[in-house]
Amino acid sequence: MHEAMFWEKLDDDRVRCGLCRHACIIPPGRRGICGVRENQGGKLFSLVYGRLIAENVDPIEKKPLFHYLPGSRSYSIATVGCNFRCCHCQNAEISQWLHSKREIPGRHVAPEEVVRQALAAGCRSISYTYTEPTIFYEYAYDTAVLAHEKGLGNVFVSNGYTSTAALEKIAPVLDAVNVDLKGFTETFYREVIGATLAGVLATLRDYRRLGTWLEVTTLVIPGRNDGDEELAAIARFIADELGPQVPWHVTAFYPTYKMLDSPPTPVTTLVRARGIGLDAGLKHVYVGNIHDATGENTYCPKCGELLIERRGFRLGRLRLEKGACPVCRTPLAGVWE
């Protein structure tokens, strides 16, 4: 048991959680939407502090982060739980665990041990991923502070629903984030995700304001969020409000969890989405979850020179010189050192 951060006491021993944008009001003995923060006698506790359900060494490209230390490895960790209810969740067996079971699984690993293992594995960063890192924020924060002291980077792979106060606290030790912008209508977020689009957009604006390196991913689902108008709206939002240098990853959906009746995303749809993003003024749009001969590579936004070659999560040629194009000397946005 670990007392939670970001909560306030209400009447009748209720508490209001301020960690994410759901702002759950939780009566005594109950848990918030995430299933892992519980009101015990008028105090809010995290039930997953140090309870790892997954730990792996991953290529940073798997997050996906294409403009953050390319070719490096990231020590990736997660606990159970999530504050979303995505019908197409690829990790539902751990993110939605607590909706069918009450107990909290996981191996206890202290923050110091996570940092030690990351260093021993030759990783350059720690990624808080697989499930939503916001719901194990206290554990992630303590680990991130220690990692930062040891020269390791810290990465969130997030659904983008963290509160402003929580983001502002962790921002000094958070180096990069990939946020899922899952669609661009409130109807989609309400029916498929169990959240609000407005909350995600507010979080994205916060990340941009705080200066954390940001990349955005949209899983393109046939018949759900693959229309030209919606894809163009996402691209315009990124270009206009986050910046045209922010990479956008458009990735393929495969039937899973509660969306087994939806077909996989055709390659042609992702190629079309990439074109829409480039037409909207984005400098870097990437195709993911499938192989595309050009859609995975990074090109100079000025002269078009191939700068970073990729195939899946494997890195090919890397031709940056001090973070810039070797031909025209245009700086490439990202974190390269």
Rank of each mutant, 00 (worst) to 15 (best):
E8V: 14
L10I: 14
D12K: 15
V15I: 13
R16F: 14
C17Y: 02
G18E: 04
R21N: 09
A23R: 12
I26M: 00
I26P: 00
G32N: 03
G32I: 01
E38S: 12
L44A: 00
L44Q: 01
L44T: 00
S46E: 01
V48P: 00
V48D: 02
R51L: 05
L52Y: 03
P59I: 06
I60R: 08
K63E: 14
Y68H: 07
Y68D: 11
S72Y: 07
S74Q: 04
S76T: 09
I77E: 02
A78L: 04
N91Q: 11
N91M: 05
I94L: 11
S95W: 02
L98K: 10
H99M: 13
K101A: 14
G106V: 06
G106Q: 10
H108P: 13
V109S: 10
P111K: 08
E113T: 10
V114Q: 11
A121C: 07
C123D: 06
I126A: 09
T131H: 03
I135Q: 04
F136Y: 05
Y137H: 03
E138D: 06
Y139W: 04
Y139F: 09
A140F: 00
T143M: 01
T143I: 04
L146P: 01
A147F: 01
H148M: 04
H148R: 08
E149R: 15
L152H: 00
N159Y: 09
S163C: 07
S163E: 02
A165Y: 07
A165G: 05
E168F: 10
K169T: 10
A171L: 13
L174E: 10
A176W: 08
V177Q: 07
N178E: 14
L181Q: 06
T185C: 11
E186T: 15
T187S: 12
F188N: 04
R190K: 14
G194W: 03
A195W: 02
L197G: 07
A198M: 11
G199L: 08
L201F: 09
R208L: 08
T212S: 09
W213V: 07
L214G: 01
V216K: 00
V216H: 02
T217S: 14
T217F: 04
L219Y: 08
L219Q: 06
V220P: 13
G223P: 11
R224M: 09
E229H: 06
A232T: 08
I234G: 00
F237V: 03
A239M: 10
D240W: 08
E241G: 07
L242F: 05
Q245W: 12
V246M: 06
P247M: 02
T251S: 15
Y254S: 12
L260F: 13
S262H: 15
P263T: 04
P263Q: 05
P263V: 05
P264Y: 06
T265H: 02
T269G: 10
L270E: 03
A273R: 01
A273I: 08
G277F: 03
G277P: 05
D279A: 15
G281K: 07
L282V: 04
K283G: 10
K283F: 12
K283I: 11
V285Y: 02
I290S: 03
N297E: 12
Y299W: 09
Y299Q: 00
C300G: 00
E305K: 12
L307C: 01
I308F: 03
L315I: 15
L320G: 08
E321F: 09
K322H: 14
K322L: 10
K322V: 06
G323D: 11
A324Q: 11
P326N: 14
V327A: 15
P331V: 05
V335R: 12
E337P: 12
